[in-house]
Amino acid sequence: MSLLFHGRETTPKVRKQSLWQRIRGGFTNHIRQILASLGELWRTPLASIMTIAVLGLSITLPSTLYILVKNSSQVTAGWGQAGEISLYLKEQTTLEQANGTLLSVRLMTEIADVELITAEQALLDFEAQSGLTNTLSYLDENPLPHVLVVTPKREHLAPTAAEHLLERLERLTHVDFGKLDIEWLKRLTAILSIASDIVWIIALLLCISVVLIIGNTIRLNILNQREEIIVMKLVGATDNFIRFPFLYTGIWYGLLGGLMAWFLVVFILWWIQSGIEALAELYQADFVLSGLDLTALTVILGLAVMLGLLGSYISVQKHIKEIEPK
């Protein structure tokens, strides 16, 4: 009795806690609520697993597509020869003039490398590759021009930039014309761009669905605990005190869903790795599928947690205020 009534407040004032007591109390409550919300998931394993599975699958799809698009971009980025420009010099250009043009091109900032293939060298190569040695010996003179094979720097390999560079090179004095086969590269770039857009759209739609799924799950949780919320409000719980366990539940859903998505992505990549390696071998390419690095993992988990928090926040904001003791 003495303990219970120790420090009795008989004055009609709301008891005030010191700043330290409030900080300590708030911290203690948050720890309790984090653990209690995890315990709540544990107490309803089937419902929790189903919700987490839906979230995990929803996050897995865009994550996997993102990785595939990223790998495709890496592959095409490695195709530097696709951006090579062949500059055919005018027929009467001498070797000295060709070397002068070579020097001019080499000095241009957009150029990574340039190589001169003389008319003689070109003829020898043609003879070797075509097997027409005897036939070509009947020609009076070499019909082939000197050619400069220009490799632009990486930032000028994109179709539009490469076209602009070609226009500049064609204006050089001894250049007859240049050739850049970029149509197929344009198509590939367009396809990858569309694929990337589709991935983003799918990701956006699935993110919205994740928010809605978590929001609805939290709404049901709130309605199931309606009586408990009323009792808590009657004994002095603030909206924040009631709100936080549901927010933490949303965060747990997001985190566990994100982890599941990560496991699934790793599994899917492992599954298709052998097939992709076999395909790469057919093209004599040394290609290794790159998976989720630490940054990507952090992004997936962070995004999942944010979606969980957003879904639960929307639901909590709407429903907690509506429940009042009557």
Binding site: M1, L3, L4, Q17, Q21, R24, G25, V235, G236
Partner: peptide, 24 residues
Amino acid sequence: ALPLVIEGYSRKHIVRRVSAALEL
């Protein structure tokens, strides 16, 4: 314990007060 938990009291304080109230 609910009102004390809401006010953020320590576990030790809660146990003491709840025991006293239940005793009463």
